[in-house]
Simulated scan of single mutants.
Amino acid sequence: MANERLRDALLRNGLDLDKVAKATNVDPKTVERWITQGRTPYPRHRHTIASMVRETENYLWPDAVAPERKTEIGTSEVVKLYPHRHSVPAETFDRLLNGATRHIEILIYAGMFLADNPRFIRTLQAKAAESVKVRILLGDPAARALALRGDEEGIGREAIPAKARNSLAFFRPLADTPGAEVRVHGTTLYNSIYRYDDDMLVNTHVYGFVAGHAPLLHLRRLSGGDLFETYSESFDSVWGLAKIPKW
């Protein structure tokens, strides 16, 4: 069976058989078999190709890495664990935002603490102008899940929808920014996600606690890891269900 993920990744990055063959020091026919016959390259070759196309080995070859090895790599993907989101230095959020060159993805209901950075929206607009792919997922104020979250956090059914409306107003300037997309969702928010290229801040949500008091994981994507990729796929799933807001 052909490896369509590998084929697509190479095409997206403008890589032909000869370029891959040269980088991996193999015959172009070997590269062709990796694509058309689904052959699995040696680990050193997988790592080289994954780096070239900026994808993980698990994405390109889902069955190539043994489960126990994935577990080991997943542990290494955890850069730091914070007991509370509010204990993360503001400098960390700012540094990751300013350093992003390819992807900025945010999944939240409101995330109004982001407004503490007065340059946040302008930075997103500048990044989009530099061809960074900016995707923002905000909570739909009319969605039942937001009212339920307010009940669960003990702050009232109207609190989260009200915050979401404020968040929509805060992100409104991105509506007219080429390269930036904003959508609203009404899914259960198990985690808030802040992705900047290969770094991701995952704010877990705990029943009875507001988000700022819940733990946060700082992850860094590794080629053979599963942890970062799991949250990334979750973001894509919500994105597929979300809709363009009625500003």
Score class of each variant (00 low, 15 high):
V202S: 00
T204Y: 01
R195K: 15
Y196K: 05
H185T: 02
A169W: 04
T188V: 15
S192T: 13
H185N: 04
P173A: 07
F170S: 09
Y196V: 03
A169I: 10
A180L: 02
D198N: 04
L189S: 11
Y196A: 12
N191P: 00
L174P: 06
G186V: 08
L189I: 09
G186P: 05
N191G: 03
I193C: 04
R172T: 11
D198E: 07
T204K: 10
M200Y: 00
S192M: 12
G179P: 04
T177Q: 12
H185M: 07
T187I: 09
G179W: 00
R172E: 15
D197S: 03
H185V: 04
N203T: 11
N191W: 03
H185G: 08
E181Y: 05
N191Y: 02
T204I: 11
T204D: 11
R195P: 05
T177N: 14
A175M: 15
Y190F: 15
T204F: 07
S192K: 05
A169S: 11
A175G: 14
G179V: 00
Y194M: 08
H185Y: 07
D176L: 07
P178W: 05
S192Y: 00
I193N: 05
D197R: 03
V184A: 07
Y190V: 08
N191V: 09
D199K: 05
T204A: 10
A169T: 01
D176Q: 09
R183L: 06
V184T: 10
A175V: 13
F171I: 02
G179C: 00
T204G: 10
Y194F: 15
A175W: 10
R195A: 13
I193P: 03
L174S: 06
M200N: 12
R172D: 00
I193F: 00
T188Y: 14
P178M: 13
Y190I: 12
F170M: 13
A175L: 13
R195Q: 14
V182L: 14
L189E: 04
V184H: 01
R172P: 00
F170P: 12
L174E: 08
V184I: 12
I193V: 10
V202D: 00
Y190A: 08
Y190D: 13
Y196F: 15
D197E: 10
M200G: 07
D176N: 14
A175K: 15
